[in-house]
Write a protein that binds this DNA or RNA. Structure first.
Length: 222
DNA sequence: GCCCAGGGGGCTC
DNA sequence: GAGCCCCATGGG
């Protein structure tokens, strides 16, 4: 019943031995992290980098600039991130909301109590759980565990998650059993993404070279 | 040319 | 709440 404790620590240690310290989220500022968090929805980071540098070239890599710009001016710059029209609207939605409620200041926003703020952010159209938690953790330095598609895929294949688990269940699992430490929350998610990206994709899964091979149910079936 | 990717919203039942 | 479609580029 409590096999989460040892397993989650063991897995994390294995990943660190394999990948080193991945301390994460590329981005020069909190605003950049927020923008990146929205742009990376359903795309790999590589595609986001292109969009970020295009926004930068046009001086649109700030929430104030985004708030003043038209979505139609933003969209073409972020084409590489797919669903660009929707994402342009999402960026504007968030910027508009931030200026309406926190005078455009992420610092003020992050002064809010964590779970209250999480609720508020989830009410902003275009922000779902993963995006909100990424913002809280990587831009705000808040202790929330970020769950993504890789997390679900990997930990269900490892036999640690139940089939019916949803986002909240995964998050609860990690937050109950992983040491409540910002650096670990940060790095553990980064390790998972790294592992997922290189070893655990549907196309060309490098199962045979996975550092968790001996623990994985899926690999033994494949 | 085909398949799939670090998500989220809207709709249906 | 689950299951489906939509959005619509880029890489393997």
């Amino acid at each position: 019943m409590d096999r989460g404790i040892g397993s989650l620590r063991d897995i994390y240690q294995r990943l660190r031995v394999e990948f080193g310290d991945r301390q994460w989220w590329p981005g020069d500022s909190a605003e950049e992290v927020v923008i990146g968090a929205i742009l990376t929805q359903s795309v790999s980071w590589k595609n986001v980098e292109v969009a970020i540098s295009r926004l930068k070239e046009r001086d649109l890599l700030s929430l104030q600039a985004i708030n003043h710009a038209d979505a139609s001016d933003i969209a073409p710059l972020i084409k590489s991130t797919r669903f660009y029209n929707e994402k342009a609207r999402k960026l504007k939605n968030f910027a508009r909301w931030l200026f309406a409620n926190y005078e455009g200041s992420l610092d003020s926003m992050f002064l809010r109590e964590l779970w209250e703020l999480r609720k508020e952010l989830l009410a902003v159209k275009g922000l779902g759980e993963e995006t909100v938690d990424s913002i809280l953790l990587y831009a705000g330095g808040k202790n929330v565990f970020v769950v993504d598609a890789y997390t679900m895929r990997i930990f269900s294949r490892l036999g640690l998650a139940q089939k019916e688990w949803r986002y909240q269940d995964y998050q609860g699992f990690f937050m109950n059993y992983v040491e409540r430490d910002l650096k670990i929350y940060n790095d553990y998610h980064a390790q998972i993404v790294w592992l997922g990206h290189f070893y655990c994709r549907k196309t060309n899964p490098l199962c045979g070279q996975c550092p968790l091979l001996e623990l994985c149910n899926f690999a033994s079936l494949a």
